[in-house]
Design a protein around this nucleic acid. Structure first.
Lengths: 110, 110
DNA sequence: ACTTTGTATGCGCATATACGCATATACTTG
DNA sequence: CAAGTATATGCGTATATGCGCATACAAAGT
């Protein structure tokens, strides 16, 4: 995207969609819970405190976006992070936010 | 975020908000148009093909999120990218999407 | 086949937000 | 101070999406 030809409208929609998938706190919570590795839905429900239905829906969204991978084992379904770029993305945003907030704090601190 | 303590609810909201700001094609178009440097609102309106009001609103959103910086010079207002992490973010997402799409294409190509 | 356990999904509501339109504000010039 | 130019904003509407609730589906055991 940087220093290349401008992206087509379709490409922009895809990129926007990608960011949209990551723009919900509950989904970020799920991703965060999966940083350490594969987990079942029930496990994720317990870890995030969400309702079963809602968690399942968000997992579906993330899977359709190819952020997560799905694997069935008997009664349980295990989800895991399928796109490793997620790690860098979160690091980048967190780092950027830290700087931004530190700067704002400095304004008050003088 | 990775391999650290889980983020607080407030932190997750901030991260989500950050991604949300980047989840609109029009805003990505504006960001893309600013990759080469500072530009005026009128310039951006022409470059993106949006209406003046809409472009102005999106610029406001991006500025409040500290993604862009604003500078007035006479009648014109110039916007520029304030957060350099945007470059990496876009690169990461684009790269990830390329891989994802290539993989999907390979399924058809065999 | 029935029950139990784990997961997914249809539906309705409430909320958020992008857009177009018109208008207001900021600044410059005559 | 009036007119013109550049940008911002109030408002209404259409659409999207997150959530809770109930229920459907899938797989395993009895």
């Amino acid at each position: 995207m940087a220093r290349k030809a401008p992206l087509s409208d379709e490409a922009l929609e895809l990129v926007a969609r990608r960011f949209a998938v990551l723009s919900e706190p509950m989904r970020l919570r799920l991703i965060q819970a999966l940083f350490e590795g594969e987990r079942s839905v029930g496990d994720l429900v317990a870890a995030t405190g969400g309702t079963q239905g809602n968690v399942s829906r968000h997992l579906q969204t993330l899977t359709q976006a190819h952020v997560l991978a799905r694997r069935r084992e008997g009664l349980q379904v295990f989800y895991s992070i399928a796109d490793p770029s997620i790690f860098r993305l979160c690091e980048l945003v967190c780092g950027s936010l830290e700087k931004s907030l530190t700067r704002q704090a400095d304004v008050f601190a003088g």
